[in-house]
Amino acid sequence: MGANVLVYIESRGGRALAGSVQLLTLAAQIAAGGRVEAVVVGPDAATIAANVAKRGAAAVHTVEGEPFAMYGALAYARAVEQAMKQAQASVLLLATSEQSRDFAPRVAARLNATMATDCTHVEIAGDALRVQRPMYARKCMVEIEMPGGVRVLSVRPNTFEAPGEGTPGSVSPLSVTLDAGDAKARTLESVRSGGQAMDVAEADVIVTGGQSLKTTENFKILQELADELDGAVGATRAAVDAGLQPYPKQVGLTGKTVTPRLYIACGVDGAVQHLAGMRGSKIVVAINTKKEAPIFGEATYGCVADLFTLVPLITQEVKKLHGASA
């Protein structure tokens, strides 16, 4: 296509978010002769940039300094917009995340661009890009054509494989000037969420336990998995009724109605009242020793297994995964 492409590398905990590094692969396909550049914003920008530069970015811009110490939509939008100008890029790629959802539309609007969020498939059709993205809670896929001009795409992590290492590109700091408008909001603090306090209704990942957990103590193994996935622990009515968990954690018709992206039901049979509260979940994993349990009828993935054995193993696997993506 011959366009210059800028990839926004999201920094998470001092590391590059895997989903954004993977986009260098797509960037190379789109660029097809044009330049692939990347921008990293935040306190760890330099370290991350050095890593990213090895994976196909001809130039990596780093934006550091006090206004970028913590994420803030206005400052980050300004930084990425200026990086776009610096790179003379017409395509901006970002990994779908809460952060990119928060500032990318500002960049797009400022650059008078077209935008598609959370793409799960991207295809190059001459000068145009054809993307697919889910709508209506994944009940429907829409295929959108984005003709020329400036385009902003956020792409779901793991849609592409990360490129291998090659000749490192250049890394250089980009000096970004903020205007008065950019000072209209500032981030005061950023604290890790999740843990016991997380509300099931707000959580994007929920690990739910039923009465078969038997004790409050046993819920800890669910909490460990939930923590690893930045999620919350939920409970069935029977578990709440038995005093294993407090009512605010109850998922179901008469408790909380939840629509997380991932719902892991451990030792939950799937009584109709419970299903009513979690049907909107996007991906459901069911773990139950009874293979005829109704929950399997609602699940995407099912494991006929003892949760006390399986859940800690899953937690380990997720930990391994998180370690590997560092």
Binding site: M70, S97, E98, R186, L188, V191, R192, S193, G194, E202
Partner: peptide, 10 residues
Amino acid sequence: RGDGVSEAIE
């Protein structure tokens, strides 16, 4: 709500 973080903004 950010990604695994909670941000206070003014």
